[in-house]
Write a protein that binds this DNA or RNA. Sequence first.
DNA 1: TTCCGTCTCATATCTTCGTATGGTGGGCCT
DNA 2: AGGCCCACCATACGAAGATATGAGACGGAA
Lengths: 205, 205
Amino acid sequence: MPQAIVHIVDDDASLADSLGSLFRSVGLQSRTYGSTAAFLEADLPDIPGCLVLDVRLPGVSGLDFQGQLVGLGIRLPVVLMTGHGDIPMSVRGMKAGAVDFLPKPFRDQDMLDAVAAGIARDGQRRAVEGDLNRVKDLFATLSPRERQVMGLVTAGKLNKQVAGDLNLSEITVKIHRGSAMRKMQARSLADLVRMAETLGLRQTA
Amino acid sequence: MPQAIVHIVDDDASLADSLGSLFRSVGLQSRTYGSTAAFLEADLPDIPGCLVLDVRLPGVSGLDFQGQLVGLGIRLPVVLMTGHGDIPMSVRGMKAGAVDFLPKPFRDQDMLDAVAAGIARDGQRRAVEGDLNRVKDLFATLSPRERQVMGLVTAGKLNKQVAGDLNLSEITVKIHRGSAMRKMQARSLADLVRMAETLGLRQTA
DNA sequence: TTCCGTCTCATATCTTCGTATGGTGGGCCT
DNA sequence: AGGCCCACCATACGAAGATATGAGACGGAA
């Protein structure tokens, strides 16, 4: 991983510092936040990352915060840690998608492994999401008709059939089809079908 | 869910029985096994199901057994339960894909919820796997050449290009292409592309 | 040996696709 | 009013695809 960042949210400054040192020792950037609010106000760099979160925080529970993040569209993988945890707590965290749940005290290596897994997961997500966004952006440039035609064409219909379904002449369909191909930067119908698949396009009619 | 079955693996017969009653009370079939070996010897019915597994078993640990199941290709969702567990144990179980991890004593409702989630997950998996197997079976009927041609065609190549890549005449490519379409029961190129996607076909050359 | 499937190719015909050229009309923004 | 995008359609031509007919070669199974 060329660049990655670890976000540490913990009200215990000394622990946060020692975690920061630990990550630095393996070449990982890190930032620390004393509260969930501080984390939410910060700007997140656009590189793979991971959030190390103490479950016991002043105010909000780390588990609740984990849920909030999902609601806010922040998909950063979370490593939970806690001094006083129990099984239901850990299970809840894991069900909510946490990468790991580490009771304190934990071994440095366990934390590093967890964070590495989280960063890897974020890298994966970014790659997939990047592809999706590229396709979405292209799709956004299509006119309504072009989208319709693309949907029907990628459903396997012939130009003639598309024309019938939309009450158009076949010529017009060809034009929209051509525009869609050009705008989507698809070099073949197979390409276009895959993009439609990525977009979840399901236009049977 | 029209039909589903819960498999209970526990050496404590009385607990197994009471679990069986619990599941029966909500209309769920169940079978109990006194050991992991007994479970492995049994025939699993071909309906959605869920495995309720005690972590502490004579001989093998439930967690190890969970790993074995994956190796054996048994993808039944697992609900873990234990009388003497700790956080690392629960985290390990959840990481390995368990639906839930319930410390004893647990509330009946928690167990029912977990099992319901497991069965739902298994239903999903079965649906997806069913589609995949259907496509795989069709693909298995293709001759080597037909597969090759299908790969290249679904990669977006023209018949002419496929012919060049494989040192064939374009006519021959068309024939293989037609056979592939027929055998795969694809009614359009779009269909074929999606099947290739399902199969993970990635033939750039 | 005969039969069958596979692989190969040719000729021929028809359909479908891609695209260019050219034109009409509507809506929107400046 | 002019410019621009969208949507629509026609004619026309060449490329590509689908299919049928016919045919030779190989190898395995009955």
